[in-house]
Design a protein around this nucleic acid. Structure first.
Lengths: 191, 191, 191, 191
DNA sequence: CATGAATGAGCGTTCATTCAT
DNA sequence: AATGAATGAACGCTCATTCAT
């Protein structure tokens, strides 16, 4: 059981920084201190190992997303919460996020791949969450008049982009979450 | 000469959608209708082929960046121009951009790799361009008071994220460039 | 374990009669009834396989050389023993000797190659053994006055040449060892 | 014509020091400053190039052998002449001799290969030359009673071995020809 | 003679994976 | 749960060789 965990841990790290094809089972085995047959005792295949890791990562991510508030005094609190949550997650599970960023893109052509499914699920969740938030805020007069779906897409893109830069080590500034929140606040809130 | 071009074209597409390690030389050869030795006649190695493609893609990208205006009536025009240029580029060279998004991340650990060098070069250019723009706009009173470097990082992240979503086919909405421009305008311009 | 031995045996034979470059790993694999990955499971590379074979051959040879007598009633007995030992060895380990004769020469340019090291070691051993023997025999009056180092070189060359012809199948006469011994005896012994 | 010569010269050197299989046409072409098609304009194949070189080398060797005296005042003069001739040849055509030593052995299994044919021809010549010489010298009382064919084989082996050591750079002593001559003289001549 | 472009076949090697123990 | 030995298929790459110009 402990060895299985070692394999997962090692594989996560290697997949994240070298990609799926760029990581050999040999490397996983050596660096996790196990043996070939043991890997295949615990996992059906290299692909199976990868899938289990990705699924676990997304589940962890989704369970946090689901803890986002559905009712808030001000609608913008939701946006603020969403931005902050994502910045927290990059720090909490950096390897898992790196893994998704690096290894999912080449798989998005296959609509039945776990990566595709989960990324669509994520997008769907964020879309409906933000969409609902913007609609309410707009009709209550809290927000300025913005095109809903496009603004949703923009916010998702913005979060996505900032997370990516952080994860890849291309942006190491502190307090970027606050900056992002203020940037959005100025753009969205009625004055 | 035409065959060399065939190889480059095929390799660009395959690298972009399957990753570097996920693409075999055999596949490039078959799909480009050439032969193994010919690939190695024109390119020193699979890596060399990849590098030449990446370098060409970045050069194309940089030559467009350098055409951005240095002097504008309003500072925000620069931001607008930058956003629009990037959206144009995703349409002009979708495979090259996909290639960079998919294949560069696992290489960023190596500071001497072309991917790393070019991405740093890109970041440097955008940073100084936006930094300069924000400083001027802020002191002229065109922009609200924002923290320069963090806002720069945010705008880069935003552009980056939106381009990524478009390139991966996760965002197909029309007019996103305008939405992004307006979003920034509201957030940055003094009213 | 038995398969590893099969590989070594087959490789020895093939290297000996076709040379190193003239033997492909495929050939070794097919003729030894194994598989590609198994060869690389037991040996790091084709070169490693070759090196292990050469080293084993030389060790076998040296262990026999070391059993040569250091003290004899007549000094010429040593020369006789040396000649006979070498003729015995061509019969005992014909493939190993063939291997050395065929595959070592192109490697002698590299002073750090095992072939070079072992051949120098062999030469050093024979030189000191014969040199010592000739000196003693000359001063005791058993031998005629001959130039030591040149005569040593000549005897080594003679043994070397006869072994080579035997090994290459260019000389199949029986009793050549005796003939060589008598030839040397007449030339060296005082009458 | 000059380029053809360049190719031959380069190929001789490379074949001699790296073996036939160890030398690529590419290497010959680059080091001789020519081009692929030119090599195949002048020679039918890599094998053809090799064969022409070997044949030329043997012809050069044989033409010298044939200049050996058939009638001498003392029979031993022939042996002395033969030994000296061979030592001269190692200095005159070191690369050609190296070539034969290094590249012929793996081909001796094929009885129709030029190497085999020429080496047999060489052996036949030396055998009959020495055999005749020993017979005459023995019956004239110049030589002691030695077994003819075995002694012939021994002398050939001795010459062969000394030449090989010189050619491979394992023996660099000056005056070895004289030493060999004296060694044989003491062994063969009646006192 | 000279050159750039092209190839079928095969090279040494490694991949993910499985077997018997 | 763990290991040493084994494998089919494919990897990136290079071989000697040929073509049209």
């Amino acid at each position: 059981m402990t060895k299985k965990h070692d394999i997962i841990e090692t594989a996560t790290r290697l997949f994240a920084y070298q990609g799926f094809k760029g990581t050999t089972t040999r490397q996983i085995i050596v660096e996790s201190g196990t043996s070939d047959p043991l890997l295949y005792y615990h996992f059906k295949s290299k692909d199976d190992l990868y899938i289990q890791i990705v699924e676990a990562a997304f589940n962890k991510y989704f369970s946090r997303l689901e803890s986002l508030p559905q009712e808030t005094s001000a609608e913008f609190d939701k946006i603020e919460g969403l931005i902050q949550l994502n910045f927290e997650l990059v720090q909490e599970m950096p390897e898992e996020i790196h893994l998704v960023i690096v290894t999912c893109p080449p798989r998005l052509n296959d609509p039945r791949h776990i990566c595709t499914k989960n990324i669509k699920k994520q997008r769907k969740f964020l879309s409906s969450y933000l969409s609902d938030c913007l609609k309410r805020g707009r009709s209550s007069g809290e927000f300025v008049k913005v095109p809903i779906s496009k603004t949703v897409s923009l916010i998702i893109g913005m979060i996505n982009g900032m997370l990516r830069l952080r994860s890849l080590g291309l942006d190491k500034l502190q307090g970027m979450d606050k900056t992002a929140v203020e940037f959005c606040r100025r753009s969205l809130l009625r004055t």
